[in-house]
């Protein structure tokens, strides 16, 4: 069997060509482009992700509160937070779990695609969705809800919410690595909706019982919504630093979970 010498093989490996920066950039561009196409072509995801927060806000924030500008302005921040969580949890969590479960990620992992391309493309797509949701909510709030929002406040709110989606993307990533394809969408919903309620995204946190207000400190959406509410001085009053620290901590924890789930697969 050993009649062919192994040295021959080394000549083959000389053909290893590193990817040029332009080609590497193209991988990220195409990955993002197709991730975007994949997502918007799937109405089962794209429509609810945008419509749910928009309809909820229109209904509870504008139509049902009879011109209460304070409430419309408050709910703009909290439904904004709610809206940002959706794409992050579903595009990373549920969609990733489905693709992983069907064996599709195996094919991608066997290819020389940089692993980060997969994550960054999803991150960008989920941020674009977040931005679309925030703009829609902003338009409804300003034109129909009477919310007074300076350009600076609007921009600040958008930046906070878009980048504040990061911990939720990492939570989605961790869920996507751990969940089974069949049960992923259901489980993501079971986490998404109660967490939104308990963080005071639907009903102002101050209207919840005391023990729930304390408990909310352990939920990432609470901290993001408080940061967003600070833009119009409607927050409970904790420091920016506290909320940033909490969100960073959650992001690190979720990232570690995702890494552990990934490592476990290799054994």
């Amino acid at each position: 069997m050993n009649y062919t010498s192994i040295e021959c093989a080394s000549s083959t490996s000389e053909q290893f060509v590193p990817m040029s920066p332009a080609k590497t950039l193209k991988v990220y561009w195409l990955e993002t482009k197709f991730e975007w196409l994949k997502t918007i072509r799937n109405p089962a995801f794209a429509l609810p992700a945008i419509l749910f927060p928009v309809i909820f806000y229109l209904f509870f924030g504008v139509l049902m509160n009879h011109g209460n500008v304070q409430a419309a302005s408050y709910l703009l921040s909290t439904y904004g937070t709610f809206g940002v969580m959706g794409p992050a949890l579903f595009s990373f969590g549920a969609a990733l779990a489905v693709e992983r479960g069907k064996g599709w990620l195996d094919i991608k992992e066997a290819s020389p695609m940089p692993a980060s391309a997969q994550i960054i493309s999803r991150l960008i797509v989920s941020m674009i969705f977040s931005l679309l949701i925030i703009i829609s909510l902003g338009i409804i709030g300003v034109f129909f809800g009477g919310v007074e929002l300076s350009v600076f406040q609007g921009a600040l709110l958008s930046v906070i919410l878009v980048f504040g989606g990061l911990p939720f993307c990492l939570l989605g990533l961790a869920l996507g690595m751990m969940l089974k394809a069949e049960s992923a969408p259901a489980i993501v919903n079971v986490i998404y909706l109660p967490m939104a309620f308990l963080s005071g995204l639907w009903i102002p946190i101050t209207m919840l019982p005391n023990f729930l207000q304390t408990f909310a400190n352990f939920l990432p959406p609470y901290h993001l919504s408080q940061l967003a509410l600070k833009v119009m001085q409607q927050d409970v009053g904790d420091s920016v630093f506290t909320h940033l620290l909490a969100l960073t901590l959650f992001a690190v924890i979720f990232f570690v979970f995702a890494l552990v789930a990934h490592k476990r697969k290799q054994n």
Binding site: K38, N42, W104
Partner: peptide
């Protein structure tokens, strides 16, 4: 592979 991303 059971299925590929369907919308591409």
């Amino acid at each position: 592979v059971a299925s590929l991303p369907e919308t591409l």
